[in-house]
């Protein structure tokens, strides 16, 4: 019979947490904070009166979800309701992760493991939709199209997707972090004059653009695997 010592358990968890690399630590921290904030917001949404004007955080969320739904309707069409939740999740996480340099954390996206992991998630979704819409046989047949000589090229083109997605994000955020570190080390105390503008560009602007690029590329890649006739958006024929 094993007994659980709460203090020892806590200490071992703390040791485990402190031994992780800084980017993984900030990933865990950001995930926990986001979960708590979104839980509070969802509690708020339960009490929310639909007849009144939305305001505050609810307005922001409405704007975000409207925007991403619109983006998905344009590229994915009828099946947009299946994809949009994934895109919203990734967008919220990526944006908060990209701007977390402002809060003194190491941006999780400045670590190649986090970004390639996100790329692999997208890759899995792309393959899943490819198999579901064409059947596994036709999906595999697509690799030897137009003739078997193209097999290596098609395979490389498919496998490189998560790496290109991940490395693009990683490189952009890492370059921002490196340049900020250089500015801080060169300017010393004068960096208080220079740093805010650069933070605006490298953290907020670049982070937002990279989030947008990641989400757009995900939707475009998934739309490439769906049958043509589903891509036209039609209000009456939404596929759940």
């Amino acid at each position: 019979m094993m007994t659980i010592n709460p203090r020892l358990t806590f200490l071992s968890f703390k040791d485990f947490y402190l031994n992780l690399s800084p980017s993984i630590r900030s990933t865990i921290f950001i995930t926990i904070v986001l979960v708590i904030i979104l839980l509070i917001i969802s509690k708020k949404l339960d009490k929310y009166d639909e007849t009144k004007e939305p305001k505050g955080i609810i307005l922001v969320l409405e704007w975000l979800i409207e925007g991403i739904n619109g983006m998905c309707k344009e590229t994915i069409g009828k099946r947009y309701r299946v994809i949009a939740p994934y895109i919203v999740t990734v967008a919220i996480f990526l944006f908060v992760a990209n701007i977390s340099g402002l809060f003194g954390l190491t941006p999780p996206t400045a670590s190649v493991s986090v970004t390639i992991c996100l790329g692999l998630m997208t890759f899995t979704l792309i393959q899943f939709f490819g198999i579901r819409s064409q059947g596994i046989k036709n999906h595999l047949k697509g690799f030897v199209d137009p003739n078997p000589l193209f097999l290596p090229i098609n395979l490389i083109g498919e496998i490189v997707t998560p790496f290109s997605l991940g490395l693009r994000l990683f490189g952009n955020i890492l370059s921002g972090t490196v340049i900020m570190a250089l500015v801080y080390s060169v300017c010393g105390y004068f960096s208080i004059l220079v740093a805010p503008a650069l933070h605006c560009y490298f953290d907020i602007f670049s982070g937002f653009i990279q989030t947008l690029v990641f989400c757009t590329l995900t939707t475009v890649f998934i739309a490439g695997k769906l049958p043509e006739d589903e891509l036209e958006y039609d209000e009456d024929k939404i596929i759940e």
């Binding site: 490395l167 952009n172 370059s175």
Partner: peptide, 8 residues
């Protein structure tokens, strides 16, 4: 992207 790859 290509510039970013070179940076990496």
């Amino acid at each position: 992207t290509t510039g970013i790859y070179a940076l990496l």
